[in-house]
Computed example of a mutant assay.
Amino acid sequence: MKQTLTAAALLAACSAFAGDVYMGAGLPGIQLGYAQPLSDSFTLRADFSTLGRLHRTRSDNNLDYDTKLKVDRLGLFADWFFSGNWRAVGGLTLNRARADLRGSGNGSTITIGNTTYVAGPGEGFDVDVKFPRAMPYLGLGYGHKGQAVKGWKMAFDAGLAFGKPRVSGTVRGALLSQAVSQADIDRELADIRDDANKLKGIPQLSLSVSYRF
């Protein structure tokens, strides 16, 4: 909510200048932003993107993971136009990006690490995956050029906010808490961490419609 209000304040503060208000969709979600040209070659931008709240399920090592995912992002960008409307983009994203995985057994047993355990009612293994709050961004885009005429335009962005997620996990339930070894917890988290680290960050691939004042 705080990030949304910040983005709205930026739009209101810039509305008196000759820039682009834009709305888009793609990764990382629905987007609202403002682009302020400084010259024919440079533009500053700020936008807010959100995926909302997503719910997914997955299975791994006899664990059924109920996953809740949320990605909210405030981006601050500088565009350099190197060829016509094509631009190189650098900046910083401020993120609230995490996945909460609640793992429960497929039946009477669950496998954590290399060991199978008996799980009582309400027992399982829960994992949190969190990206850093602040991440550098590099990308390539098209549109929002300073010399553009008034009216409606299209813009495109592709890039990556760089940052490795932090993975942590806890055993849920009195019986499992006493039985599960730390070595098995570490092995289970290492498997999940290997999958999470393949992302290398939060990607952007979005198409937007802008209006030039």
Rank of each mutant, 00 (worst) to 15 (best):
A8L: 15
D40G: 15
L207E: 00
T67W: 08
S41K: 15
Q31D: 05
V171W: 06
L63E: 02
L27V: 07
E123T: 03
V167R: 11
A25V: 02
G124C: 03
G113I: 02
N61C: 03
G90C: 02
R102D: 15
I202Q: 10
D126M: 05
P132Q: 04
S108C: 04
V209D: 06
A174P: 13
K198V: 05
R73P: 00
K2E: 06
L76M: 07
Q36V: 05
N106Y: 13
Q36W: 10
R133T: 13
L11S: 05
R187P: 08
V180K: 07
A18V: 10
L76D: 06
L10A: 09
F162P: 00
H144Y: 12
K150R: 14
G33R: 08
L76E: 05
P121M: 00
L32F: 13
T4Q: 14
D66Q: 06
V180C: 00
G139F: 05
V171N: 09
A148M: 07
Q3C: 00
L205N: 08
A12I: 08
K130E: 12
T93E: 06
L54C: 10
D79L: 07
A190M: 03
F17R: 14
R172F: 10
K150H: 14
S49F: 01
F82L: 05
Y211V: 02
K164V: 01
Y117P: 11
R187A: 15
A35N: 06
W152Y: 12
I202T: 08
D191W: 12
N95L: 03
A158V: 12
L175Y: 10
V71G: 08
A8W: 14
T116W: 01
K68A: 14
S39D: 07
L32T: 00
G159D: 01
